[in-house]
Nucleic acid binder design. Sequence first.
DNA 1: AATGAATGAGCCTTCATTCAT
DNA 2: TATGAATGAAGGCTCATTCAT
Lengths: 197, 197, 197, 197
Amino acid sequence: MGEKSGQKRSYILECSRRVFAEKGFRNVTMQDIVAASNISRGGLYLHFTRVEDIFSAVLNSEESRDGESTDSLPEEATASDILALFMKEQKKEILKKKNSLTIAIYEYYFHLNYKKIKIPPKENLIKQQFETGILILENLIRDGISAGEFYCEDPRGMAGNIMYTLEGLKVAARTLGISEAAVDKELFYIMQGLIME
Amino acid sequence: MGEKSGQKRSYILECSRRVFAEKGFRNVTMQDIVAASNISRGGLYLHFTRVEDIFSAVLNSEESRDGESTDSLPEEATASDILALFMKEQKKEILKKKNSLTIAIYEYYFHLNYKKIKIPPKENLIKQQFETGILILENLIRDGISAGEFYCEDPRGMAGNIMYTLEGLKVAARTLGISEAAVDKELFYIMQGLIME
Amino acid sequence: MGEKSGQKRSYILECSRRVFAEKGFRNVTMQDIVAASNISRGGLYLHFTRVEDIFSAVLNSEESRDGESTDSLPEEATASDILALFMKEQKKEILKKKNSLTIAIYEYYFHLNYKKIKIPPKENLIKQQFETGILILENLIRDGISAGEFYCEDPRGMAGNIMYTLEGLKVAARTLGISEAAVDKELFYIMQGLIME
Amino acid sequence: MGEKSGQKRSYILECSRRVFAEKGFRNVTMQDIVAASNISRGGLYLHFTRVEDIFSAVLNSEESRDGESTDSLPEEATASDILALFMKEQKKEILKKKNSLTIAIYEYYFHLNYKKIKIPPKENLIKQQFETGILILENLIRDGISAGEFYCEDPRGMAGNIMYTLEGLKVAARTLGISEAAVDKELFYIMQGLIME
DNA sequence: AATGAATGAGCCTTCATTCAT
DNA sequence: TATGAATGAAGGCTCATTCAT
């Protein structure tokens, strides 16, 4: 029973995710979600009353989906290997058009911004992801330094810088437009800055 | 006549700018602009038929406003001085809440994105600004290198990297939220990377 | 212009009045009023945003309509004549089914009651009408006493008593149902209490 | 089984009564009753299919509750004593805000009125109560007259007049609003009219 | 009998857009 | 040109009522 209800909820989120990926956040209406999930207007309201709640729930259900396509690495992978893989994933994310929530996420946060809604940090998964990203990179850089692969005087600073640069690329790709070559160039520049000559 | 019409148009843009700065792009309706400019509904439609046209026109009229608050520099300013000033302006821009079009611009581009509207590069002032920013930085870096103030192996790459990082900071400030101290840290990191020890 | 707008407003109120008379207050939707006045949904909202506002406006526009059907009296009418006429009018009002706002008024006040909305006494026309009714009756009774037609020790008390009795008859007619004969009996009883034997 | 079912029915009515007392008749939805009785939606529908049916059943179950708070009278009570007590009860009823079905009853009858539903007199308990009230008062007045306490030429007429006045006070208290002092004045006026000077 | 998820009709409200003046 | 009243489509929300379990 609780089971069934949970299933439906998941089903709605699954359908909604597609809608958000396709139309962003601000363009999505309750009706869009009704249409996408083939349920009744009232039926949807049984589970969610606002688009923003649905989006928030979608974000919270993303965790599990996240590692989806990561190529697995061999045991003896070097820091450079891992960094290269990370950059490859980031590139994919930056350029991904289909099935990406990126714009929707930005729009969602702008929306919260204007509605003056604050998400408690503990529930703010995007922020957590960002900060986790910094930590992972920092550790990776330190590992690379220890292994004599990387050179970096301020691993923490470098990690932050990389994450903000990636954020900049992500948003620029959705606004100014950015070619694959340009992304490659930027990512290459970052890696160059780390690798010992 | 053309004169009069032009005046009214400018007046509308001036009023609209305030509205966009306050409410972003997506939250603004024709009615908001009518209300802000004390103009008649029909009157507005004589000049513009869509909110996006108005926003586009606001962007195109921004050029003149841009250098507004730049502190002037002495003749003999060093590259470091200029870079420091640039960073100070960027910091202001990143953290500015009032009277900033930043969110509106992102929303506008997302909107174009979903409407599949492409702006010809020549008319895309924001993109041009971004690219101009890269050029200016590149030149500045080269000047600094020549003067023995900076060290950098790839001025062009560095300039791009800085611009994307700033973009990342700007969008993060409007989504994840970012403290002044964190901005300082990031900007300091960038400068550190340039200045010779 | 202000003229035109006022005309439309009056027109809406006129149509609404019919609707309220037919369906009461609680059963009336904005759509009913739209339908009754052959204007557009949005057009109605230009003038009124809630059914209760429309009803309130209808009440406030009733004043002028009020004396509509009063039979005129000869100059030399006695207090008894006037009282008889008053009672005749009251009887009509009590039994009137078509075109009466009585139930709507009760429903409206109940509605305000539950919404905890208080009408400032000065704007509460129904209350004023009631109190005016008491004053008029009191004066009439005093006149009748002076003329030796009536006998009454407490004209003010009698006037209040009559008004509440009439109110009771009015509401009973819409709830319990009441025959014309029963109304006659009650009104006759009141008059008997005044007229000297 | 019939027993069990009856219990549940009574339980629903008990809960519903509270809801009607609090929200009137028109504001009550099936959902309100479901919520108030911790019963399932479907479960409620097994017993009642409309709010009006529930309200009707509540009214019919009120009989037993009615005499609830009547102060008991000594054996040798005079007609005046009884009348005074009656008036005291009426005053309480007129002014009672909490736990009163008064408005709900009016709304219910208005509702029937508009739905053109007629209750057969035999089942119309409110009407019967009203008529019983008249009879009781009439007898009381006659008793008072016999005992030399009251003076009244038309006990039947007086009884009806009193009941309608009380009805008027009751409805006025819920619409125009009425102070305790004003109620006292009216009730006093009625008693004055009976008691021999 | 009992449950409560699901349905869909009905109402409310806001806007972009038009058009007579 | 300018005005602003009017239109109607689009979206939001709530409830009575049904129905599979």
